[in-house]
Amino acid sequence: MLRLNINDEISRLRSVVLGTAESCGPVPSPEEAYDPKSLEHILAGTYPREEDMVREMDAFAKVFEKYGVKVYRPEVIENCNQIFSRDIAFVIEDKLIIANILPDREKEVEAILHVLEEIDKGHILRPPAEVHVEGGDVMPWNDYIFIGTYTYDDYPQHITARTNKAAVEYIAEQFPHKKIKSFELRKSKKAIENALHLDCCFQPLGKGKAILHKNGFLVEEEYQWLVDFFGRENIFEITPMEMYQMFSNVFSISPEVVVSEQGFVRLNTWLREQGFQVEEVPYSEIAKQEGLLRCSTLPLVRD
């Protein structure tokens, strides 16, 4: 049996589900776009090609291999985009929560049944239908669980609003011993302003550091809470263009090792100055779908 264990974003990774770009289907129509950035690239004719995305994910898989991480991959569903495994489920402590995601994507959960079968059924949670949640909005951080949300009345009008108030309440009920800290995120039809998930504008790192983007947060006090929590001197503040490019969506294999996109020169330089080992991979094609390295992973076990 697989003994799940996730308490933070940075402890030494032992096993992970990494999505797949194989058979991800034709270029979607504008009406089929789930997010403003994909829509931009569909309209511009620059939507990523399958072979380029497969190559990028293979580079990421090689980094996991280098560090001895056990990697599970979803079964390939024909003509289905299965890159972003973080959306379909996430782990907190020893529980795996199946996300209630956009209905069109439910078959993606079926593609990881071979992983779920290795987990004690009592450790798999399926939230009720009114709970809308995606893993990109949920970050276990020691005593805390950080959750990105959008609770305004126009929630149903935003295809970019993925985690609702019911989700915050549900997670609080499941983990009563944790401190739940939720953050209202900015939702927009303009990709450069839209924080699709919490990990699009915030990412805690090892060594007490964090990446942050102020404009991703709707409530300044909530942004300020994170600044005070980590300390201004420990924060790498990203620009609107860097948020658009997904600078905060890096992935930690351990407190010292961060996987980052090779084009993030300003960030990667800073990370190395802080003493991190930076593993650079090409991921700029996948980024066109408003997701990057953290979005492509579903960590199962960290030490």
Results as ranks from 00 to 15, higher is better:
117 E>L: 05
117 E>Y: 08
117 E>K: 12
117 E>Q: 13
117 E>P: 00
117 E>V: 06
118 E>F: 02
119 I>Q: 02
119 I>T: 02
120 D>M: 10
120 D>V: 06
120 D>A: 14
120 D>T: 06
120 D>L: 13
120 D>N: 15
120 D>R: 13
120 D>Y: 10
121 K>S: 12
121 K>G: 10
121 K>L: 06
122 G>P: 03
122 G>N: 12
122 G>D: 09
123 H>Y: 08
123 H>K: 15
123 H>T: 00
123 H>F: 05
123 H>L: 09
124 I>F: 03
124 I>K: 03
124 I>L: 00
124 I>N: 05
124 I>G: 04
124 I>Q: 04
125 L>T: 09
125 L>W: 10
125 L>Y: 14
125 L>V: 14
125 L>F: 14
125 L>A: 13
126 R>K: 11
126 R>Q: 02
126 R>N: 07
127 P>S: 03
127 P>A: 12
127 P>N: 08
127 P>T: 08
128 P>T: 02
128 P>A: 01
129 A>I: 10
129 A>D: 13
129 A>F: 08
129 A>V: 14
129 A>C: 07
130 E>Q: 12
131 V>I: 07
131 V>G: 07
131 V>N: 11
131 V>Y: 07
131 V>D: 04
132 H>G: 02
132 H>Q: 12
132 H>M: 04
133 V>F: 00
133 V>P: 01
133 V>G: 01
134 E>A: 04
134 E>L: 09
134 E>N: 10
134 E>W: 10
134 E>M: 11
134 E>S: 09
135 G>P: 03
135 G>L: 05
136 G>Q: 04
136 G>W: 10
136 G>V: 06
137 D>S: 12
137 D>F: 09
137 D>K: 11
137 D>L: 12
138 V>Y: 04
138 V>H: 07
138 V>A: 02
138 V>K: 01
138 V>F: 08
138 V>Q: 00
139 M>R: 09
140 P>Q: 08
140 P>H: 03
140 P>L: 08
141 W>D: 12
141 W>Y: 12
141 W>V: 04
142 N>T: 10
142 N>M: 13
142 N>Q: 14
143 D>Q: 14
143 D>K: 15
143 D>A: 13
144 Y>A: 00
144 Y>I: 00
144 Y>P: 00
145 I>T: 00
145 I>N: 02
145 I>R: 03
145 I>W: 00
145 I>E: 01
145 I>Q: 03
145 I>P: 04
146 F>Q: 04
146 F>I: 07
146 F>L: 12
146 F>K: 11
147 I>F: 10
147 I>H: 05
147 I>S: 01
148 G>Q: 06
148 G>E: 08
149 T>R: 15
149 T>Y: 10
149 T>V: 11
149 T>K: 15
149 T>N: 13
149 T>W: 11
149 T>E: 15
150 Y>Q: 01
151 T>G: 13
151 T>Q: 14
151 T>S: 15
152 Y>W: 15
152 Y>F: 14
152 Y>R: 15
152 Y>Q: 14
153 D>Y: 12
153 D>I: 06
154 D>L: 02
154 D>K: 03
